[in-house]
Simulated assay, not measured.
Amino acid sequence: MTRDDDTQPTSPDSDDQLLVLPDDLRHELKEPMGPIETDADRLLETVDGPLIAVGDVVTYHLLQAGHRPDVALVDGRTKRSAVDEEIHEAVTAGASIEVRNPPAELAAPVVRALRRALEADEPTTILVDGEEDLVALPAIVAAPEGASVVYGQPDEGMVHVKITDEHRAEMRDLLERFEGDTDRFWALLESDADA
């Protein structure tokens, strides 16, 4: 497993911090961005492009259904508690990138890792030290047309977002309302070069 160059713990004003979720946006993120499915096999019947999974339990259910996501982001936790050992072992078995991303933030290392994983030819699992939940937002912006982003909705199931220009525009607007360095965030997410 490789660690991204800049994944060491950092101070809050480090240049790794890009965006922070403001408290007044939290309620907007509670609404699912797509249909909720509880059966991984049924969900997979509607996937016909690259699949990006955000969350340990979601990734586990997709693996159990025989489908390895093209990109998976896991952090070893679900609903703020550690996942069962069986889930942890299954979802981290293929982890190839390890990055740090503090809760309620989008930091440079995880954005770089997402970009790299989306461009990789092989399925890529990103193990996040911290929290991976918010990475669903830039994944929706950066994923190719026709791709699927699947993330967990606590106590309800898996939310399936089939990528369209409309979804991308919604996520762009939402991310623009985060606090932090949005210019650098977009430069990192949308280019091959490190900004």
Rank of each mutant, 00 (worst) to 15 (best):
M1V: 14
T2L: 13
T2E: 11
R3A: 09
R3C: 03
R3P: 04
R3E: 07
D4K: 03
D4C: 00
D4V: 07
D6V: 00
T7H: 13
Q8A: 15
P9F: 01
T10Y: 13
T10M: 06
T10C: 13
S11I: 04
S11G: 10
P12W: 10
P12C: 07
D13A: 02
L19S: 00
P22R: 12
D23K: 14
D23I: 06
D24W: 07
R26G: 02
K30Y: 05
K30M: 12
E31T: 15
P32G: 09
M33K: 11
G34V: 03
G34H: 11
G34N: 13
P35Y: 10
I36N: 06
I36S: 08
T38Q: 15
A40N: 08
D41K: 10
L44P: 00
E45G: 01
T46P: 00
G49L: 12
P50W: 01
P50L: 13
I52Y: 07
A53I: 01
V54Y: 15
V54E: 05
V54G: 03
V54A: 08
V57R: 06
V58A: 01
T59L: 05
Y60S: 09
A65T: 07
G66E: 14
H67D: 07
R68I: 03
P69D: 10
P69S: 08
D70Q: 09
V71H: 04
A72C: 05
A72V: 13
L73N: 08
R77K: 13
T78H: 10
K79R: 13
R80T: 05
S81Q: 14
V83E: 07
V83L: 07
D84G: 00
E85K: 05
E89K: 07
A90Q: 12
E98I: 12
N101H: 00
P102E: 08
A104T: 02
V110K: 03
V111K: 00
L114R: 01
R115D: 04
R116C: 04
L118E: 09
E119D: 15
A120C: 02
D121T: 12
D121E: 15
D121W: 04
E122R: 12
P123E: 08
P123W: 11
T124G: 09
L127F: 13
E131C: 01
E131M: 04
E131Y: 14
E131I: 02
D133K: 00
V135D: 06
V135F: 14
L137V: 03
P138W: 08
P138L: 10
A139Y: 07
A139P: 01
I140T: 15
V141A: 09
G146K: 12
S148A: 15
V149D: 08
V149L: 05
G152C: 07
Q153W: 02
P154C: 08
E156F: 02
E156H: 14
E156I: 01
G157R: 05
M158V: 04
M158P: 00
V161Q: 11
K162F: 10
K162H: 14
K162P: 02
T164V: 14
T164M: 09
D165L: 04
R168M: 05
R168V: 11
E170K: 05
M171G: 10
L174I: 02
L174G: 06
L175C: 12
L175K: 14
L175D: 02
R177Q: 04
R177Y: 02
R177K: 14
F178G: 01
E179K: 02
E179S: 12
G180I: 10
D181R: 15
D181L: 09
D181S: 08
T182P: 02
E190I: 06
E190P: 11
S191N: 14
A195M: 06
